[in-house]
Design a protein around this nucleic acid. Structure first.
Length: 427
RNA sequence: GGAAGCAUGGCCGAGUGGUAAGGCAGCUGAUUGCUAAUCAGUACAGUGACUAAGUUGCUGCGUGAGUUCGAAUCUCACUGCUUCCGCCA
């Protein structure tokens, strides 16, 4: 959520900032509603004030043993007037709130102009794609060779966009989770956390998935109104919803969490239908930071580096791009995507998305801390990033480490987690 | 699933219809000193109006309705927590 005071004072400035992401803010409607709000609020509050003082007088009169009947008749019409004024104000405020809640975050200055992912700007590259002396298979074919990756049986169990893994491949999937968690805990100063996989609406509102993106979510249909998490970001970030950290609480708070993620992929029919790139259910290790406002820019660089470390240790070639205004997420002020090399596609594909939300999520969540310099409560800044998406990492390992016989070499750093074996998919 | 109780500020906690005590933590200043203590002052959160710092108003006692001139307090519904019983990995 944007600062309501800024939206009131400088709507043109906000409109200009949001135009970078292709969002059109109707300044005229906003201004009209806003001046209406002002009039109604002044009216309602002055009526409230009158009620209060009259009630007080009645109280005093009664205590003094006076006759209160004339006072009561004076106040008769006040009740109705007040109810009307409050209803009018509420109606306008609801309209304003709906507009405000639907406003995306303002992109940071350094976010490049652009309409789509084609306009994202590469920041750096790491590693060199391997030269193959044989025809490469994609991960679906490699999974068929060993019969350890099975989409058909998953379709029978559930439907499309799910996978079943067996044997050594299933073990490698688990090894990746352990490896990522351990690296962030032991080398990057993160605290591990375990959270629910079902969350309520307030949590989804806090991080920005609701109200605008409900169709991307799986929802339970009982009376509790719960949703399967699309990312650990939601439960982990909302830990500080409606909290005011007390003086002396140590910042930053850096949390790492492994969860499955569930996405309905409602708008992506026909995209990446083959293989594990885009699934309804996938594992992810997520990094979440809560920082002081002045530290958030550096924290994004650090967090991105933590995610990149995983790819470096796995020796997977990647590049890092900064998302342009047209491709950046609703809540984000600035996002780096890390893209891993996928040999079968001869392309870099997203494997991590690292974002600074500045105070956008914190304002929605009312996540605050007491600034020791001022003694006042201020909004925290939040960040998160995948460190990494496990399914896509597994796919990248399969393809980049494949052998001519269809087996897959195990990256060095994973071997301790795999009983020391060097290859999987060999009988 | 059954029964009872509870829900007040960053935290603790008083308050049974007349408009939120007190304490801790915080902030400011002072004193002693030494890595803290004592004293005094200030001070809750959200939000609005008007001028420059400031002044002033409204709202907030789990949530939502209701009764009333007036609700933390009374009524109803809901949510959460605690305890006991039952069931259960």
């Amino acid at each position: 959520m944007l600062d309501v005071k800024l939206v009131r004072a400088e709507p043109e400035l906000i409109a200009k900032a949001l135009a970078k992401r292709g969002f059109e803010l109707d300044v005229e409607t906003l201004n009209a509603l806003e001046s209406e709000r002002k009039v109604l609020q002044i009216k309602a509050e002055s009526l409230q004030q009158e009620r209060k003082s009259r009630a007080k007088n009645i109280g005093k009169a009664k205590a003094a043993g006076e006759d209160i009947a004339p006072l009561l008749s004076e106040v008769e019409s006040l009740k109705e007037q007040l109810a009307m004024a409050e209803a009018d104000l509420k109606a306008v405020q609801e309209k304003l709130t709906a507009i405000l809640n639907a406003l995306p975050n303002m992109p940071a200055d350094e976010v490049p102009e652009g309409a789509s992912e084609d306009d994202n700007v590469e920041i750096r590259q790491w590693g060199t794609p391997r030269e193959f002396s044989f025809t490469v298979r994609d991960h679906v074919d490699l999974g068929e060779v060993s019969n350890e990756l099975d989409f058909e049986v998953a379709t029978k169990l559930t439907g499309s966009r799910f996978a079943v893994m067996r044997g050594q491949l299933a073990r490698m999937n688990r090894a990746l989770i352990q490896f990522m968690l351990n690296t962030h805990i032991e080398e990057h100063g993160y605290q591990e956390i375990y959270v629910p996989y079902l969350v309520n609406k307030d949590s989804l509102f806090g991080t920005g998935q609701l109200p605008k993106f409900e169709e991307d979510l799986f929802k339970t249909n009982d009376e509790r109104d719960l949703y399967l998490i699309p990312t650990a970001e939601v439960p982990v970030t909302n830990i500080l919803r409606d909290e005011l950290l007390k003086e002396g609480a140590s910042l930053p708070i850096k949390l790492v969490c492994h969860t499955p993620c569930f996405r309905s992929e409602a708008g992506s029919h026909g995209r990446d239908t083959r293989g594990m790139i885009r699934q309804h259910q996938f594992e992810k290790v997520e990094l979440v930071n809560f920082v002081k406002p002045e530290d958030s820019d550096q924290a994004l660089e650090d967090l991105t580096a933590c995610a990149e470390t995983i790819l470096q240790k796995l020796e997977l070639p990647y590049r890092t791009v900064i998302l342009c205004g047209g491709d950046i997420g609703f809540s984000s002020a600035k996002t780096y995507d890390i893209e891993v090399w996928v040999p079968s596609q001869q392309k870099y594909r997203e494997i991590s998305s690292c974002s600074s939300f500045r105070d956008f999520q914190a304002r929605r969540m009312k996540a605050r801390y007491r600034n020791p310099a001022t003694g006042k409560s201020e909004f925290l800044h939040t960040l998160n990033g995948s460190g990494l998406a496990v399914g896509r990492t597994l796919l990248a390992i399969m393809e980049n480490y494949q052998q001519e016989d269809g087996s897959i070499q195990v990256p060095e750093v994973l071997r301790p987690y795999m009983g020391g074996i060097e290859f999987i998919g060999r009988s």
